[in-house]
Amino acid sequence: MSAEAEGRSAAERFREEQHLGVQPLGDLVALIEQATGIDVAVLEADQDQHGLMMRDPQRDAVFIGVACTSRPMRQRSTLAHELGHVLFTDVTDNSAGAWSHRSHEEIRADAFARHLLIPIEGLREFLGERELLSQSVLSEVVQRFLVSPSIAAIALCQAGYIDAATKREWLALTTPQLATRFGWSDQYRALRDESARRRAPQRLLARAISAYAEGVLSVQAIATLRGITRQEAEAELREAGVVPSEQPVEWADLTELPDADVDLAALDAALEGPDHDAAAPEVTAGEDG
């Protein structure tokens, strides 16, 4: 089976298992965390770093991290791509993303991401029997499924709505261009602001907040985890009714304390000895020079 076929089959299976139908997907971070139990974080990273998946075979633990970016559609495709690696149990080399040589695993993860984000049947359900599609329809597809124009163009070509020449032409378009031309730049700006913010794994953050409420973790730790100021974190927690509980100090009952067996003989002997300071010679001002 080809990498494309494997990716499509896995995406369809994931949607079926999670009862997602063929509709557009919303918050991918929450979806991945809830569906798989995997911790996902949006992190500040170098410009060339998009995403990674790390697996600890000893603890059977997996972590997905994606970079903060002003390109929300890319972030979504990166999240879906890394989920593909997880489901295929790939052991990936983080440096293997160079386009000069795309491995079978990378091509398969690309296909999985595309079919997960914009399933062919969902596209057909949305467009119906439309013919001779224009860029305005491409914009509708991008806006509805929240994918890049290139991913949308590939899906439209696979579904038989456009030919290869139109696909090549549309591959050069960008989401900001379509959003500006067709009137949804405000929505795109909101998506961009969201994708540019750090985001901590939900389970980790929930445990941290619980520890803060118990009075065993500082508010600064939560602020650092979220990438906000201490004052912002404290204000949000207080508004939500989350305040650290005061840990009661339990004093021991004196009757429960053990008897102290202290030998003071050496101290008594020292106190009863001669007063050496009293025998010290007096020093006059003249002798002091």
Rank of each mutant, 00 (worst) to 15 (best):
Q75P: 00
R76L: 05
R76G: 02
R76A: 00
R76E: 03
S77Q: 15
T78S: 14
L79H: 10
A80I: 06
A80G: 03
H81M: 00
H81I: 04
H81F: 00
H81D: 02
H81L: 03
E82A: 05
L83T: 04
L83M: 11
L83S: 04
L83N: 03
L83P: 02
G84M: 11
G84Y: 06
H85G: 08
F88M: 14
F88T: 06
F88A: 10
T89E: 15
T89N: 13
T89I: 13
D90W: 12
V91Y: 12
T92S: 09
D93F: 15
S95G: 15
A96H: 09
G97F: 14
G97Q: 00
A98Q: 12
A98T: 14
A98W: 13
A98P: 00
W99S: 14
W99R: 13
S100C: 04
S100G: 08
H101F: 12
H101N: 11
R102T: 12
S103E: 09
S103A: 14
H104Q: 15
E105D: 14
E105Y: 09
E105F: 12
E106D: 13
E106M: 11
I107K: 08
I107W: 00
I107C: 06
R108E: 15
R108H: 10
D110Q: 14
D110R: 01
A111W: 06
A111P: 01
F112I: 03
F112T: 06
R114M: 12
H115Q: 09
H115T: 01
H115K: 05
L116Q: 03
L116D: 03
L116A: 02
L116Y: 04
L117G: 01
L117F: 05
L117W: 05
L117D: 00
I118L: 11
P119S: 08
P119Q: 11
P119W: 09
I120Y: 03
E121D: 12
G122Q: 11
G122L: 13
L123N: 07
L123A: 01
R124N: 07
R124L: 02
R124Q: 08
F126H: 08
F126L: 09
F126C: 00
F126V: 01
L127S: 06
L127Q: 07
L127V: 07
G128R: 08
E129T: 12
E129Q: 13
E131Y: 04
E131G: 09
S134K: 13
Q135I: 12
S136M: 09
S136Y: 05
S136L: 12
S136R: 15
S136K: 13
V137L: 08
V137N: 06
L138M: 05
L138Y: 05
L138K: 10
L138N: 05
